Simulated scan of single mutants.
Amino acid sequence: MLLVAGCAEQPSSNETLSLTPVAYEALTGWSGAEALSVLSSLRAECRRFATLPPQTHLGGSAPTIPNGSRAGDWAGACGVLATTPDDASSAQRYLQAWFVPYRVEQDAFYSGYYEPQVFGSPTRQGAFQTPLYARPTDLVRARTTAGSWVSGRWQDGRFSPHFSRAEIDQGALAGKGLELAWLRSPEDLFFLQIQGSGRIVMPDGSVMRVGYSGRNGHPYTPIGHVLVENGDLAAHDVTMVNIRNWLAAHPDQARSILEKNANYVFFKRLEGLDAASGAPGALGIGLTPGRSIAIDRNVMPLGVPVWVETRLPDAQGQVGDWRHLVLAQDIGTDIAGPGRADLFTGWGPAAEAVAGGLRESGTMTVLLPRPPA
């Protein structure tokens, strides 16, 4: 590990997760259908855990998490799952026998993310003038003296962030053979970077799947905050849709606004993915719309089922109660603290509209596996 000075890439919360055991009867809307909805993905998680050393840490802290923070903690639940039939009643009996519900005492807050679908070209032509870059060869990750991870490069014996967004826009990476594709606009690139993965529809109708491959190490500055400070948007109007609309309506200012966020994300091609599932999450498993969430791994283990009670907007912006079982299969750089989660809504315009409008409070109940014995 390289020990260098710098700032952490991901936020962390000093607040300790507070859990209280509850009965399944306390979960409004709990049913066999909900249990069955995650069984296939849970099986995929178990196959993943079986490849890991038993002491592999999945997240959370041992004093707070009674069980489930190590890969070996799942041996019992995963062993029984292998012989559990795929029907609603069997799935419900299985989860109630092998997982204990714990209510997160902190208030929950939910936002959404999606897999953008944009148009692109394998070559620079016509309207396709914005490059989508692969990870530069000199971009590395290292540990700070405080133990946090940072990204950057070594230059003249010193470690510092890689080129900023403005420097890259000015051509710092041009001609290095890093272009994976060319997009129609800087806004398409920016929202692809915000979400961390996406689908690029080529002129011949083929689709290139791309996923996160690294970041330049500069701090992330929310563009919504910049627009509010400039008086361009009211704070209550800051949504992904409104930000995109503002950028599209002000092409002469869009680049300078986007460059206020020096943070820059690089991508890699994702091969062999099922078109019916999302990009792989932190466990390497394809995300499922409405059934996968991103959490803070500092406070909660990856893989655990989570019962969500909140309100969700539809594609038309109408908000209604939403109570469902999901799986903690991903992490996010702005997801920090107990009760904080990002719901994966899928891909395409409808998924973008739902994710962009989701900012709701609610409750969260985590289902922790019982010990193997």
Rank of each mutant, 00 (worst) to 15 (best):
1 M>T: 13
7 C>D: 14
8 A>H: 05
9 E>A: 13
9 E>C: 02
10 Q>P: 07
12 S>D: 06
14 N>P: 01
17 L>H: 08
18 S>Q: 14
19 L>Q: 05
21 P>I: 04
23 A>R: 08
27 L>H: 03
29 G>K: 12
32 G>E: 07
37 S>R: 10
37 S>A: 15
38 V>Y: 00
39 L>W: 08
44 A>Y: 00
49 F>G: 05
60 G>C: 11
63 P>Q: 08
65 I>A: 01
70 R>D: 04
72 G>A: 15
77 A>Y: 07
82 A>H: 08
83 T>I: 14
85 P>W: 14
87 D>V: 04
89 S>M: 14
91 A>P: 09
91 A>K: 04
98 W>R: 13
99 F>H: 01
102 Y>A: 03
106 Q>T: 05
113 Y>Q: 02
114 Y>S: 05
114 Y>H: 13
118 V>R: 02
118 V>A: 00
120 G>V: 07
122 P>E: 06
123 T>M: 07
124 R>N: 10
128 F>D: 05
144 T>N: 06
145 T>G: 10
146 A>Q: 15
149 W>E: 11
157 G>L: 13
164 S>G: 09
167 E>N: 11
168 I>Y: 00
169 D>Y: 07
174 A>K: 13
174 A>T: 12
175 G>R: 11
181 A>V: 10
184 R>G: 12
185 S>K: 09
199 R>T: 05
207 V>A: 10
209 R>Q: 04
209 R>Y: 03
212 Y>I: 01
213 S>I: 01
214 G>F: 00
217 G>C: 09
219 P>S: 13
219 P>R: 11
222 P>C: 02
225 H>R: 15
226 V>D: 03
230 N>L: 14
232 D>W: 01
237 D>R: 07
241 V>W: 03
243 I>K: 05
246 W>P: 02
248 A>G: 00
251 P>A: 10
257 I>Y: 04
259 E>A: 14
260 K>D: 03
261 N>M: 00
266 F>M: 02
267 F>G: 06
277 S>C: 04
278 G>I: 03
281 G>A: 14
283 L>Q: 05
288 T>S: 00
292 S>M: 12
296 D>Q: 11
303 G>K: 12
308 V>F: 09
318 Q>D: 14
321 D>G: 07
321 D>P: 06
322 W>I: 00
324 H>Y: 09
326 V>R: 02
329 Q>E: 15
330 D>I: 06
332 G>H: 03
336 A>L: 09
337 G>R: 02
338 P>K: 04
342 D>Y: 05
348 G>I: 10
349 P>Y: 11
349 P>F: 12
356 G>Q: 07
361 S>L: 11
364 M>K: 01
366 V>L: 03
371 P>L: 09
372 P>C: 08
